[in-house]
């Protein structure tokens, strides 16, 4: 029998600010991501020095996950994320380090972030999630795919909850929408609701 799932919490980070379950979270809004992300990190009250070593995509994903998972007790949470530009924001930085013969300085600290799924790794490490994970890349958020894939993970008991969403960062253009799917919650986990969240 097809089981029904719910969205228990959701959040959004973009140029308009931060929303948690649709309500604004106090944060210093700035057009520059480096300033905004640092201010918002401090406002969360978590001490996690590794945050400052991350690339922009991982910082964005980490902040979103922090909003939703900070008080989660379950460790059986799978992660299904996607975006449009993969890790291109950091790819550019790596390309820059190898673009001139005079200044050729590829760095492991940059190169490691030239994969989009490293932001999943950062969330998994922070929240101790030894769970199912996958990263898809598509022009727009593929609601159909993500909703079905998430239901499969829950139906097959591969996870108790699933953190789903979109995490896009390229050259100061960014948008994150994350939502947590589980047995109970205020919103139905269906295509229409997910499409609304992504608008």
């Amino acid at each position: 029998m097809e089981r029904k799932y719910h969205i228990s919490k959701h959040c959004r980070i973009d140029h308009h600010g931060v929303l948690y379950n649709g309500q604004p979270l106090s944060a210093e809004i700035s057009t520059e991501f480096s300033i905004f992300s640092k201010a918002f990190y401090y406002s969360l009250g978590t001490t996690y020095p590794k945050f400052f070593k991350m690339d922009n995509l991982s910082k964005l994903a980490w902040l979103g996950a922090e909003i939703l998972l900070k008080e989660e007790l379950s460790k059986n949470i799978a992660i299904v994320l996607s975006n449009r530009s993969s890790s291109y924001d950091t790819d550019l930085k790596h390309i820059h380090t190898i673009s001139s013969t005079e200044q050729y300085y590829p760095s492991p600290a940059i190169f490691v972030y030239t994969l989009p799924n490293v932001c999943i790794g950062e969330i998994a490490i922070r929240h101790h999630l030894q769970t199912e994970n996958i990263f898809f890349v598509s022009e727009q958020f593929d609601s159909q795919l993500t909703v079905n894939y998430c239901n499969y993970l829950l139906n097959s008991n591969r996870a108790e909850k699933v953190l789903c969403g979109w995490v896009e960062y390229l050259e100061e253009n960014y948008k994150l929408v994350l939502y947590l799917v589980e047995k109970t919650g205020n919103l139905a986990h269906d295509l229409n609701v997910v499409r609304q969240l992504m608008l």
Binding site: P108, I120, G121, E122, A124, I125, H128, Q130, T131, N133
Partner: peptide, 11 residues
């Protein structure tokens, strides 16, 4: 099949 993360280190 299964795909489980280490949640240990990024590299």
């Amino acid at each position: 099949e299964a795909s489980i993360n280490d949640a240990n280190h990024i590299s």
